[in-house]
């Protein structure tokens, strides 16, 4: 097999100089504000569902469900991408980002059919989060069991 070309240090330095970095500060501020807005909205929903007479357990299910449904609708209407371009992590870190990462490939790959398109591709972005999220939960569970429950 042909060996991979090593990085050309001089050219690498040139590339770094010529490539403008992401505006990290600006992006962080926008994410902070928009993420905060999402959380405030969720809190409003929380209080609203409480007022409707749902108990705390039900409210904790109803709030994320509402956010997921809203994201799915916004994604379907083609609005979520535009909002996320501004908000960045403000919309991708809350459950809205997760919902969008499932809905967007489901829409995109419709053209390849229900099974190999929508069905198979739906989790290409969210799949790793689910897999590693569950694995991390299992590890945490074991630690909890051995050190807290039995320890």
């Amino acid at each position: 097999m042909q060996k991979k070309t090593p990085v050309d240090a001089a050219y690498d330095a040139m590339t770094k100089r010529a490539s403008p970095p992401s505006e990290k500060g600006k992006n962080a501020l926008k994410a902070f504000l928009s993420g905060g807005l999402v959380c405030c909205f969720a809190q409003l929903l929380f209080d609203f569902y409480g007022m409707l007479g749902l108990n705390e357990k039900e409210v904790k299910a109803a709030v994320p469900i509402t956010l997921i449904v809203l994201t799915a609708i916004l994604t379907g209407l083609g609005l979520f991408g535009k909002l996320a371009k501004f908000a960045g992590a403000g919309l991708s870190v809350p459950i809205t980002g997760f919902a969008n990462s499932v809905v967007s490939p489901a829409m995109e790959f419709q053209t390849e059919g229900r099974v190999l398109g929508t069905g198979a591709k739906m989790f290409t972005l969210a799949g790793p989060v689910i897999a590693y999220g569950c694995s991390a939960a299992a590890v945490y569970g074991l630690i909890y069991y051995f050190f807290i429950v039995r320890g």
């Binding site: 994604t75 960045g88 967007s104 829409m107």
Partner: peptide, 9 residues
């Protein structure tokens, strides 16, 4: 890259 409606920067 990503699906068209995927929100990212």
């Amino acid at each position: 890259r990503f699906p068209l409606e995927y929100g990212g920067q």
